[in-house]
Amino acid sequence: MRTRWLKIPAAWITPLGVIGAVIAITWVGIAFTARLWVPFDPLSQDLPRLQAPGIDTLMGTDALGRDIFSRLMTGASVTIPLALMLVLMSLAVGTLIGAIAGYFGKWVDELLMRLTDLVMAFPTVILAMVVAAALGPSLFNAVIAAFVVSWPQYARMTRSIVLGLRTQNYVMAGRLMGFSPFKTLRVDIAPNVVGPILVLASLDVGTAILLLSGLSFLGLGAQPPTAEWGSMISAAIQNFDSWWIGLFPGLAILTVVMAFNFVGDSLRDIFDPTSQVSRAGARS
């Protein structure tokens, strides 16, 4: 289905890409359904404290007697939708700004690009921390903070592609036929920007999850008692002997970030013919 829709020749479907897609889709599925089937209320503190993983509590319990498996699964429904939303927001704003800068050029370009330079000049996590701290610690503010630091890369990339496309003959031909600027952007430019931006977005989901969990880990994101992977790991620091408290959320972050990276890498191979060639060469 998916392959036919994207017209991917069979040779392009790589094992890593498929594994990544399966894991990513599984996690997204968990994120949207977890509340319906987890064995325990992720917030109730009825179970024995610091219980090691066993039959009744698959991944043990934490210092407050909450079931880690249930918290982990519902944690997915906190982090993953927010990360996806974050990526979509950055993508929408970043590509729009980049497209306008690249297409209109001159002072518009200058203004918008200096603005993105300003944001990009700061280290991502530090700037996100500053924003989150200034707005006050909450998950919503963490998303805003992460958004502030993540849109510029989309703007940069879109601008450079649009700059290259703008002088293409078919864009000129459209202009000669009386296309309005927005029709040119929609018909002649946008479809040719989609591929690389999609790749960037799928790679960015992993980064967004890391950033959101990172902020929560630092106490700037999700607040107790919300089940969130970063804050779960943060809580594990207090009970270092109970390895299961931190290990499973860590594994969750690891698998989901890697899965989205695998998907992004294989998408890049699909959209970028030059990387195809190099990989085929490496194989033979």
Partner: peptide, 18 residues
Amino acid sequence: TSIQMVFQDPNSSLNPRV
């Protein structure tokens, strides 16, 4: 728009996605 142009390079005169 009654002035039209045909370009030298046929590879870039058509939109690849349309």
